[in-house]
Simulated scan of single mutants.
Amino acid sequence: MTYFMRFDESMKAIRPSDNTRLRMPTDTGDVEVHVYEAKHRSGGASLVGVPRTAENLAVLGLPANTGKQSPWIIPPFPLLKSAFRKGGPFIRDGKIEHIPDGFDPQKVVVGGEQYRPGPPAYIPYELKDDIPLNVESVDPTDWDIEMWVGGSATRAATEEERSYQLIPWTYYPLGFLDLWLEQYRCYHLDQDIPAELSPPDEDIDHDAEESETPTGLKMRKVELDASTGELEGQHTVYIQVLVDTELDHAITATGHEANGYFLEGLACYLQSADRIDPSLQLDPEGEGIGIYGNPAHVEKAQTAFRRIAETPSKIAGLVEQAEAAGIEFDD
């Protein structure tokens, strides 16, 4: 199956900035990618889209009139800052000269896991059987649509705000941009739509430090470079609980899901109890949580989570302590 992205240690890091045009080299030409907001949300994501242009469609092997229902091949979505690290797959190509339909990044709302803003112009990460592929038959009337307030906080969108451009609620890792491009291409070529792509042969985080506890806590630490702007020189660690492990079962027994939002609740409690530094930035998503900050502070956070993972039997008591301290776990 096609893998569009190229990962190479020779590729320079990119410092994202608002309204930046990037090129993504492929075997069939360069895909034009737009960064609309370098800091769409506090943490590690930019607001990025792939415009529907004749040149982009040609790279995908599609005629120039494909997907007229939308000005994008991939509408704006949060792309993790790790996408711009040294090793690829993007090259800076100047400023955006034309934003599709005069898109205003301030006028965006978030949708849930069933997000599908304009099919068949766009196919989401997970295909939902109850959302038809025919764009004319999609009815978002009952969709849970919200506005971001800050951090992980949201509020219900007003009637006017519900008409704003939708973006996905969850963040998707780097490789899924390839998946979306392949899904889009296959849809318009009337081919079977793939559900997943194989990861690249080379890991983009060439210098990542990985560790895994016997109970099922996985941590991946990376030193941030110029691509992350003012975060350069800081560290980030991505923490997740592996499925069907001792730690996963212990968390589930408390009535919570072992996802990034649960880990965010634990991190907030650790910060409030002065067990990890309050300056650390927390970036939760469905599978895990990214923690950014001073290298020494990130190391201390890793140690704290590692100690928690060593004794799953104490998870229930820790959750009770956190809730008693006013922490709300947003599963």
Rank of each mutant, 00 (worst) to 15 (best):
R162F: 06
L242N: 10
V319Q: 01
P63Y: 10
D225T: 10
R23F: 14
I315M: 09
P71N: 08
G150V: 11
E230C: 01
H256V: 05
A253T: 06
G29Q: 11
F84T: 07
G233I: 13
Q69L: 13
L60A: 09
R6I: 10
G118K: 06
Y122E: 05
T141E: 02
G286Q: 06
E113S: 10
G49E: 02
L282N: 01
S227G: 15
P105C: 01
W72Y: 15
I239Q: 01
L280P: 01
L247K: 03
V31P: 04
S211A: 13
A58I: 08
Y36I: 00
T252L: 12
G255R: 00
F84M: 08
K128R: 12
A322C: 12
E113K: 03
T26K: 06
S198D: 07
P119G: 07
V319K: 03
V135T: 08
I74D: 00
R6G: 07
A226F: 11
G216L: 02
L79S: 08
E299L: 12
P295C: 10
E113V: 06
D207T: 13
R155D: 04
R85D: 10
T53A: 11
G175H: 00
D139R: 11
A157K: 04
P75W: 02
A45M: 08
V50W: 04
V50K: 02
V59N: 00
D142L: 11
I193A: 11
Q271R: 14
L179E: 02
H297A: 14
H34P: 10
P89H: 05
Q69A: 15
P199N: 04
V48P: 08
